[in-house]
Every structure is written in C-alpha cells, then in structure tokens.
Design a binder for these strands. Structure first.
Lengths: 265, 265
DNA sequence: AATGCCACGTGAGAAG
DNA sequence: CTTCTCACGTGGCATT
C-alpha cells in the first residue's frame, strides 16, 4: 500500500483520477470530443480519432463513481486502506459489497403490545405514518406495498433500538446520528428471510448470488468474501430479456410474514 | 433499453460474466494460468501468453463484485433497470453511490431536542417515517413529494392532537386507522408518474435512466453527484434539479443539515 | 526479477 | 446508418 504512479506520461495523474481532463481536453481533437455542434463533419478519420476520447470519458465516469464510493466507504467504515486514494478498484468494490451486506439487519422482531412513554409514542407515530401511507392511493400498488413494507422493517428496527433506551430521557441522545441506519436495504422481504427451495422464485439461472440463504442475512459480518463463486458461467440461457418477473418479493401484499412487524391489523 | 449481447462468439458470455473460466482455463496455456507450481518454466513466451489470462482474471473479479452490487442494490431499491443483468457498469456504480449517500443521512429528524414522553416519541416516530419515505427512491419524485407532504400535514395534526391527551395510555385508542384523514386523492402529480422525470441530469444524451440525480432532499453530505461534471457537455444541460422542495413543515425542525450519520462512535 | 494494477486503444455487438 | 458499452490485449509503472 504505498503510492504508485501519481503522475503519468502526459496528461497527468492516472490512477483513479476523478475526471482526468474533464473540461475541454486541450490536446486532442479540438472540434470533436463532445461539442459536435457545428462545423464538425465526421470525416471517417476523426471519428476514429475521437473514439478513444469517448471511451476514456466512459472510463472516467466509472472511476469517478468508484472514487465516490471510496470516500463514502471511508466515512462509513474507518478502513485504513481506503484512506489512500489509490485503493485498488477490486478492493473498493469488494468492500462496498461487504458493507451493503452488513447493512442488512437481523431484526429479530418481537413487537407486541404497545408501550407507553416515549417508546410507545414512537411506535405509534410510525404506526400512523405507515397506515397513512398504506392508504394513500396516489401511488401504484406495488410501490406502495414495497415502501410500506420497508417502512415496517425500519420501524421495527427503530422500535427495537428505542427499547434499549430508557423510555424517557432519550430525547437528547436519540436524535443525532444513527437513527436511521439504512433506509432501504434489508433484503427480500418475501418472507422470513430464509429462502425456500433454491429454485422457486428467482428463475434467474446463472449467478444467483444471495450467498447463503440463512447465513448472509442475520450475520452482520461477512460470510463469504469470495470463496463461494460457484455460479459458474452463465451463457447457457439464451433468453432474451431477463424476464423473470418474479424476482421480487411476491409483491402481493400479505407477503411478509413472521419477521416483519405490521402496524395494521 | 433492452438486452444486449448475452452470449459472445466463442468463449461464451461476455458481459459481466462472473468468472468466465476461473480455474485452469482448459483452452489456453495448459501449465500456466494459476497452477504455476512445478514443471513450469516461464519461458519468456508463455509468460506473455498468460498475461492476458491473468488480466482477465482481474477483470472478472471486478465484474463479479459489480454483479453482486447489482443484485444487492436490486433488493434494496426496486430499481427496474437493475433487474436486467446487463445493467451498465457506470449505472450500477452511480446508483450504489447514491444509495450509500442515502444511508448516511438518516435525517436526524430534529436537530433540536426531542420532546419526551409519548408526544415526543410520537413526533419522532412520524419524523423517522417521513424521512424514510423521503429517501426511498423507488417512487417517482413527484409522488414522493406529494405523499411526504401529506404525511407532514398529518403528522402535524396528530402531534397537535396528542398534545391534548395525557401522555400515557393512549396506546389503545390511537392505534389503527381512523386517525388518518382520507388518503389524499391525487390532484397534482402528473398522470402516469411512477417513473422518474424524463430527463435528468446526466449530460449523457442517450439512455440515461436512473431516477433523480441527487433527489433526496435534506442530503447533508453529497454535494455533487455529477452535476458538476459537465465535461463540456454534449447538449446544454439546461435543466435544473427538483430543487429541494423543503417539504418539511415548520415544526419538525427541518434542520438536519450538518448531521451526517456515522456508524462509528 | 517477478507480480499486480491500471489506462489505453480497438474490434465486436447491441440499441436507437 | 450512428452511438454507446463492453471485453480484450498490451505497455507502463509500482511494489515485493
């Protein structure tokens, strides 16, 4: 982990440079490269000449996101290796995946009777919001269901969290940071979280990640990092169109079962 | 945006294939490629021959993580475009960044002190729900805004109402619906809605799905997603984002600002 | 010297 | 047709 190649031959800084040239690259192909507005006649040759430029721009977009990812991840987890702006691409991605997986919370559920005090009010407030949203009809059913579902999960987490605080004076502590760990996330709401048979829904033949059914969720920390890799090539499927409508939680309301707490009857 | 190139000429599947050959590629350079344990004499030539293989392996690792990212993100946000296993790399990354940023800004609901007791909890709960909804991005911006707005009004009313109640045993009464005013009825909200606005930021002329650029209101962190990027823009970018509605009612602080959620203590 | 990572340019396809 | 994305192979450079 040192520093490597900060500057390159001509254009300057290579590695993960956020937008290398960005603005009107001075050197290459004046009238082409982006501003093909007027007086540019794609004369065969210059088309080929600006191909690399375009390609580079694409690469830069990717690298830019990668850079963003790095810094975000650096904030999130104080990973030493991410401090260095030259972190390896593969590492950044791997850690991002890892982090996202970690965001999935076990959410052991429980939630029974209502409580009083702050906690009770909190839950009640969430309750209200949820049922309100649930009854709103300006949103298509599917999305509504999804959002409500997610909201319930979130609600569940929050309620749990608040349960650990003393009911009254949380006021000063609860608020900052950390209240909403991850808005979305939590996977496949479909049911309790454990998948049924491997085939059933997914229908997506090749790489069907979802590492290990029961292991990856619940366990906050890594399960597999990369040893799994079984998927082995896809290619066999000649289907056009991903199709597989059923990828998602059934969506037919009433899906989520045991683990997800629901505010409505 | 459909599908593109699922299988390639010979070796099979190109795009985003998870480890194409992985172990001991049968076709190329028998003894090299990974198992350079014994009886391998790097004879100059085969070194160069296996360079591409190694490089490919590296590429595959990256692509694999990208695939993981896609599926994770797909679970998290029901982004239509991510269902397609051929989602563009740049898009996946961009959306990942966007998502992570959202995770970080839980919108602490209230910069100031929270109220205690049932009322405080109630308001806090509604706040949380609202900000959660606000950050969900599987709903088109307009509808989201609308719903959030309604939710805020509702929140306000409810909070008021609870002020008049005694703090504790409301629990049994408040509960299910009945509290909610009739769910909105649409009014504004452009007709079909549901998908994002036609053209977003992106400077990228052709297919640029991806919902709203930075959309999420509040967003303490994130400065630029890529709006600053205009690498000499193809078309003028003309449009300007949704601009922050400032949906949140006076009451609930609407502060957040500098508060960024951080997972560490 | 050897390994690994990266940016580059290019041909191939696909989408519009 | 064009326009864009991709995988590929390669040279360059850093690190061990």
């Amino acid at each position: 982990m040192g520093i490597r190649r900060q500057i390159a031959e001509d254009s300057g800084h290579k590695r993960l440079s956020p937008h290398t040239e960005q603005m009107h690259s001075p050197g290459i192909c004046p009238q082409a490269a982006g501003c093909r507005m007027r007086n540019s006649y794609p004369n065969r040759e210059d088309k080929r000449l600006m191909k690399p430029v375009i390609e580079k721009r694409r690469r830069d977009r990717i690298n830019q996101s990668l850079e963003h990812l790095r810094t975000l991840l650096l904030e999130a987890t104080h990973d030493e290796t991410l401090k260095n702006p030259k972190a390896e691409k593969a590492d950044i991605l791997k850690k991002t995946v890892h982090f996202l997986k970690m965001c999935h919370n076990p959410v052991p559920s429980d939630g029974k009777k209502l409580l009083s005090g702050f906690k009770g009010g909190f839950r009640e407030g969430l309750n209200q919001a949820t049922s309100f949203l649930n009854s709103a009809d300006s949103i298509c059913q599917k999305k509504k269901e999804y959002v409500v579902q997610r909201l319930c999960q979130h609600m569940e987490q929050q309620t749990q969290k608040h349960c650990h605080d003393s009911a009254q004076d949380v006021s000063s502590r609860v608020n900052q940071r950390q209240i909403l760990p991850s808005p979305p996330l939590i996977s496949r709401v479909t049911g309790n979280g454990l998948e049924q048979s491997p085939e059933t829904q997914t229908s997506r033949p090749p790489h069907s990640h979802h590492p290990s059914p029961s292991s990856s969720f619940r366990t906050p920390c890594m399960g597999q990092e990369q040893q799994q890799t079984p998927p082995q090539t896809f290619q066999a499927n000649t289907n056009k169109k991903p199709t597989q409508r059923t990828l998602f939680p059934p969506t037919s309301s009433s899906v989520n079962s045991a683990l997800v707490w629901r505010p409505w009857p």
